[in-house]
Simulated assay, not measured.
Amino acid sequence: MRRESRSIRTQVTARGGNEFVIEDLDSLRNAIKETRRMHPIVVGLPRVAEKDDAIPLAQPITSTTGQVVTEIPTARGRLPEVWGDDAHVWNPGRLFRIKTGKQINIGVFANL
């Protein structure tokens, strides 16, 4: 993130300015989102499962195949199905790769 903001600062200085304008901040948007994905603002709020686990359901549900489900298994790590094969790497470019069609939504803001 520091490297990204320094790069924008260099562009601002090169054009003779000393303050960021809205266009400069827009260009940092994906870097900010990616940084928030990798390093949440709230301490102790991990965005990655630290171990294989299961989330118990308050009430069992029945799947379309008739199976009764009482818990949802979670796998350790970040979801490559959502974030790509490089899910463990800081890469703001991933937010430019928007897929068409149905997407996996795991949060209310930018999938965070």
Score class of each variant (00 low, 15 high):
residue 50 E to V: 00
residue 74 T to Y: 06
residue 28 L to W: 08
residue 39 H to I: 13
residue 76 R to I: 04
residue 41 I to E: 14
residue 82 V to E: 01
residue 45 L to Y: 09
residue 102 K to R: 14
residue 33 K to A: 08
residue 38 M to D: 04
residue 50 E to R: 14
residue 46 P to N: 06
residue 11 Q to T: 12
residue 39 H to Y: 15
residue 96 F to H: 15
residue 60 P to L: 05
residue 103 Q to C: 13
residue 22 I to C: 09
residue 77 G to K: 02
residue 101 G to V: 11
residue 74 T to H: 03
residue 52 D to C: 05
residue 15 R to M: 04
residue 10 T to K: 11
residue 15 R to W: 00
residue 73 P to Q: 03
residue 30 N to S: 11
residue 86 D to F: 04
residue 27 S to H: 10
residue 63 S to T: 11
residue 75 A to V: 05
residue 39 H to G: 10
residue 54 A to Y: 06
residue 97 R to W: 06
residue 82 V to N: 02
residue 54 A to P: 08
residue 93 G to I: 12
residue 16 G to E: 13
residue 21 V to A: 04
residue 12 V to G: 10
residue 97 R to Y: 06
residue 4 E to F: 04
residue 8 I to Q: 15
residue 101 G to E: 14
residue 108 V to W: 00
residue 26 D to K: 12
residue 16 G to K: 01
residue 70 T to L: 00
residue 47 R to F: 05
residue 56 P to S: 02
residue 18 N to E: 13
residue 43 V to Y: 11
residue 91 N to Y: 11
residue 47 R to T: 11
residue 73 P to S: 02
residue 56 P to Q: 07
residue 40 P to K: 05
residue 57 L to K: 07
residue 21 V to L: 01
residue 30 N to K: 15
residue 97 R to T: 15
residue 10 T to V: 08
residue 103 Q to Y: 12
residue 88 H to C: 02
residue 70 T to C: 10
residue 18 N to W: 03
residue 111 N to V: 04
residue 104 I to T: 12
residue 19 E to V: 10
residue 82 V to Q: 01
residue 90 W to S: 08
residue 86 D to H: 00
residue 34 E to D: 14
residue 38 M to L: 13
residue 95 L to H: 15
residue 94 R to G: 05
residue 15 R to I: 01
residue 48 V to W: 00
residue 63 S to H: 09
residue 60 P to S: 02
residue 46 P to H: 03
residue 95 L to R: 15
residue 76 R to S: 04
residue 44 G to R: 13
residue 28 L to V: 01
residue 106 I to N: 04
residue 79 L to W: 05
residue 71 E to G: 01
residue 34 E to C: 09
residue 4 E to K: 08
residue 58 A to L: 08
residue 49 A to C: 00
residue 19 E to T: 12
residue 79 L to H: 01
residue 84 G to M: 00
residue 11 Q to S: 12
residue 50 E to S: 11
